[in-house]
Every structure is written in structure tokens, then in C-alpha cells.
Design a protein around this nucleic acid. Structure first.
Lengths: 150, 150
DNA sequence: CGGATCGAGTTGACATGTCAACAAAGGTGC
DNA sequence: GCACCTTTGTTGACATGTCAACTCGATCCG
């Protein structure tokens, strides 16, 4: 009980603060940052829409809407897929790459300040273990967001 | 890095699963559940809107909108405040009380299944410590949601 | 008291997320 | 090749969240 409530409270306050910092320092929302960082982690800086949505656990609909807005801001573009005519390869633009590079430093500092620096090495290690214990069980079974199951 | 990414991933998957369970078993959203449980924790099952919003870190605007919807579903009501004419005491209805009582059991089971049962006693203890280390620093300084500061 | 300011809560416009329906291409079996 | 079903991505309607403007009572101070 203590652990769960603590987790929930931490989640509420920490994520609020970190995304506030992110928005102030770089004008990106949490969602923007996640999309950009997933793209920038791939080689070629490109991903099929469905792959991206599966990894982020977003519905394709949500992602498509969000990408439309990000495209209008020049952060990403859409390409046709050579191997599948229904296409949609999402590609990071130079501006998008620049945006996340510029944001990353502040973001890391923010996470460090509000989170990592408050913890002991031991606590950090155990937290990693906790995530490793919890995540795998959630990562395969349900798979797709509710909107897509049926 | 490992701890932060693990935390983020866990947060994504765990919260997704738990709120999915919650919605399926009781028809309540996360937001509904939080509001109801905050109210049911007070004696008299009532709170001033601003107190509630401060504790939940919601803007008064968001809370007011959400309460309007919850009121239409009969989960809460609004009363005038005797000591302050600008009023707004939020009161849990019988239906609201019943709804959260019914939801709580499933919810606890869900949290246990996806989270607590995956962890050792030691990990649970440390997680509590982590929250205690992180939360206090975030709990006083910033205080109000962005929309209210200015 | 009376004017200025502040704080509580609501509202409406707009941004974002969800859901179901859809068009179009891929896959399968005949 | 062609009927059939699946998968991809988009769309529009609606639900929810954000932000700024507003009303009106509280409070401050002459």
C-alpha cells in the first residue's frame, strides 16, 4: 500500500515537473519528445507508423493525428513505403533532429535534479530491478491498445 | 539511465494496464477513481473544490469540468459553502460511495497482480523509500498547476 | 462605508486523445 | 484471376484537458 501510493504520488508530481521543465526549456510536450526520441534511436531516423505505435503503445489513430500536427511544425515527414503500398514511413527531419538534440541536455538535467540526485546508488539499482521485474509481464500479452483489439 | 528508462517504461505499461482493468471492472476512469478516492478519504465525504484541486494537482478548470460530468452521472454533487459565498463544496453521493467501494476490490487485485506480486518485500520497501525521497521536494515549491500561476 | 484588488469557481475556445468507420492495398485459397 | 478476409493508415465525431476571460463574493485599506 505504501509503495503503491508512493509510486502513484511520485508519478504524478515527478512527471508533472519534468514535462513542465521540458515544455519550458524546449517547447516540446512529453508526447513530442517520446516520438522524436523513438525516431532518433533508429538508424535512418525512420520507422513505419505501426511499428512506432506498437512500441509507444499508442493507437495508430492517436499517432496519426499527432504526427499530422508534428508534420505541420516541420519536425517529421511522411514517406511512402517502398515495400508496402499502404505505406507510411515516418522520418525525422533535420529540424526534428535538431529539436531533440537541443532538448535532450535540459531534459537530462531536469531528470537528474528532480529524481536521480535524490536517490542513493542502491535505490537507483533497485528501481532498475523493479522495472525489469514488472515490465516483461506487461510487454507481451496485451500488446495493442484497446481501440485496436476486437 | 537504466533506472529512468525503466521507470518510464513501467509507468507506461503498468498504468495502461491498471486503468484498463479499472475501466473494464467498474466503468470508472483513472480520473474518476482518483476524485472519488480523495473524497472518500475525507470525513463527511466532502471537500472544497480548491482543496481537492490542490491535492490532485489539477487545475480548478479541469476539475470543474470533470466534476460537471461526474455530477451528471450522479457520482458527486455540489453544495454551497456556508462560510464562503463563492462556495463549492464537493460531496460524494451514495452512488459515488457505492461505485468506489465496488471498484476498490478489483482495483487492489489488479495492482497486486501486475505489480506487487512481481516484487520482493525488499523491493517494495525500497520503492516506498524512493517515493519518500523524491516526493517531498516536488510537493511544496511549485504547488499549483501552470494554468493557475501568473 | 466605498473603491480597488484578490480569490473561487465557471465558462468557452481550442488542443489533444479515443473510438468506430472507412478506403485502399496485401494476403490466401480456389 | 478473383472472391474473401486482414492489415494499414486516415478521418470525423465526440470525450477530455488546457488556457484565458469572466462573474461575483471576500478582503484590504483609505
Amino acid at each position: 500500500m505504501r509503495a503503491w501510493l508512493g509510486y502513484r504520488r511520485m508519478r504524478l508530481l515527478l512527471d508533472l515537473q519534468v514535462s513542465r521543465d521540458l515544455a519550458e526549456s524546449s517547447g516540446l510536450s512529453d508526447a513530442d519528445y517520446d516520438v522524436l526520441s523513438n525516431l532518433s534511436d533508429t538508424d535512418g531516423h525512420r520507422l513505419r507508423l505501426t511499428e512506432l505505435s506498437a512500441h509507444m503503445r499508442w493507437s495508430r489513430s492517436r499517432l496519426s493525428h499527432h504526427l499530422t500536427r508534428m508534420q505541420q511544425r516541420g519536425l517529421i515527414t511522411r514517406e511512402e513505403c517502398p515495400s508496402d503500398g499502404r505505406g507510411a514511413v515516418i522520418l525525422l527531419t533535420d529540424a526534428g533532429w535538431e529539436a531533440i538534440r537541443a532538448a535532450a541536455g535540459h531534459h537530462v538535467e531536469s531528470v537528474r535534479r528532480h529524481f536521480i540526485d535524490r536517490l542513493t546508488d542502491e535505490q537507483i539499482r533497485v528501481l532498475g530491478d523493479i522495472a525489469d521485474a514488472v515490465v516483461p509481464h506487461l510487454d507481451d500479452v496485451p500488446s495493442r491498445p484497446a481501440a485496436d483489439r476486437r
